[in-house]
Every structure is written in structure tokens, then in C-alpha cells.
Amino acid sequence: MRAMKITTNIPVPDIEQARPFWSDFLGLRDEEFNLGWVARFTDPDSGAHVQLVTGDRTSPADSQLSVHVDDVDAAYAEALAAGYEIVHPLTTEEWGVRRFLVRSPDGTVVNLVAHRS
């Protein structure tokens, strides 16, 4: 398993109210997606990005980071073998990703995710 990209997940009460700061002020103008409860804003030139999250739709806990991996099934097997706490099991979500959430030893909840081909 290899990490391809890491995205910071920022908890916000309302994505539309938070949008002007991230999009206008910080220049993260490209809205890559918006599912109502999670949206990613990206700088079109540098690729710098954040995800704003009001609350995870299917997981019992929100994640602080999303780590995009090349093989999420292998990552899940490694996490289980290492004995890490699985917060949300390996799931193919209706919005087009396969993912699971795991708690690191320091308590950080990490969303490991791969987009379906």
C-alpha cells in the first residue's frame, strides 16, 4: 500500500458559510466535489486543497485526514494485522469510493480511501 495524496479534513458547521474564507480569501477556488456534508476546495495552480466536513455520512466518527492510497484493501489488511482500531469497516460507498477509517495510536482518526476505477 502506498499513500498517493493526503487531505486535511476540517470540521465546519456549515460548508456554504465556510466557503468564502477558503475559496475567496485563500484562493482554493476549484470545488472538486460537494456532497453536502463534505466538499473539497483546491487551488487550481498549486493543487493545495482542504476538505470541509460537517459530519461523516456513514462513519460513527469524523476523520482528521484522508489518505488516498493505491490499494485500500491491502491497507485494510495491514491495519487489521497491526491491531489498529477500525472505526469504520472497509466499505464501498455510494458516492464512488472504497474506504475505511482507522484510529492511529495517538488517537487521530484517518480515512484511508481509494476511488473506484
Rank of each mutant, 00 (worst) to 15 (best):
D71P: 14
D71I: 10
D71F: 06
D71L: 10
D71V: 01
V72A: 00
V72I: 02
V72Y: 00
V72P: 00
V72D: 00
D73P: 13
A74Q: 14
A74T: 02
A74M: 02
A74S: 04
A74H: 11
A75S: 15
A75E: 13
A75L: 10
A75H: 01
Y76C: 06
Y76K: 05
Y76W: 10
Y76H: 10
A77R: 11
E78G: 12
E78C: 06
E78S: 08
E78Y: 04
A79K: 12
A79Y: 04
A79Q: 02
L80I: 14
L80R: 15
L80Y: 07
A81M: 05
A81D: 14
A81H: 09
A81Y: 10
A81V: 10
A82Y: 09
A82C: 04
A82R: 12
G83M: 02
G83T: 15
G83H: 06
G83K: 11
Y84E: 15
E85C: 03
I86V: 05
I86W: 13
I86N: 04
V87C: 01
V87S: 03
V87K: 03
V87H: 04
V87W: 11
H88P: 04
H88V: 07
H88D: 14
P89F: 01
P89H: 08
P89D: 10
L90E: 04
L90N: 01
L90Y: 01
L90K: 02
T91A: 00
T91M: 02
T91F: 00
T92M: 03
T92F: 04
T92Q: 12
T92H: 02
E93Q: 14
E94K: 02
W95R: 12
W95P: 07
W95F: 07
W95Y: 15
W95L: 03
G96A: 06
G96S: 07
G96F: 10
G96H: 10
G96D: 12
V97Q: 10
V97R: 03
V97I: 15
V97W: 04
V97C: 00
R98V: 08
R98S: 05
R98Q: 06
R98W: 02
R99M: 14
R99W: 09
R99D: 11
R99E: 15
R99C: 14
F100P: 13
L101G: 05
V102F: 01
V102Q: 00
V102S: 04
R103H: 11
R103G: 09
R103S: 04
S104E: 15
S104M: 14
S104P: 12
S104D: 15
P105N: 06
P105L: 04
D106Q: 08
G107S: 05
G107E: 08
G107I: 14
T108G: 07
T108A: 07
T108E: 09
T108R: 15
T108F: 05
V110N: 01
V110H: 01
V110M: 07
N111V: 05
N111P: 11
N111A: 01
N111L: 04
L112R: 12
L112Q: 09
L112P: 00
L112D: 09
V113M: 13
V113A: 01
V113W: 14
A114V: 13
A114Y: 06
A114P: 13
A114L: 13
A114N: 13
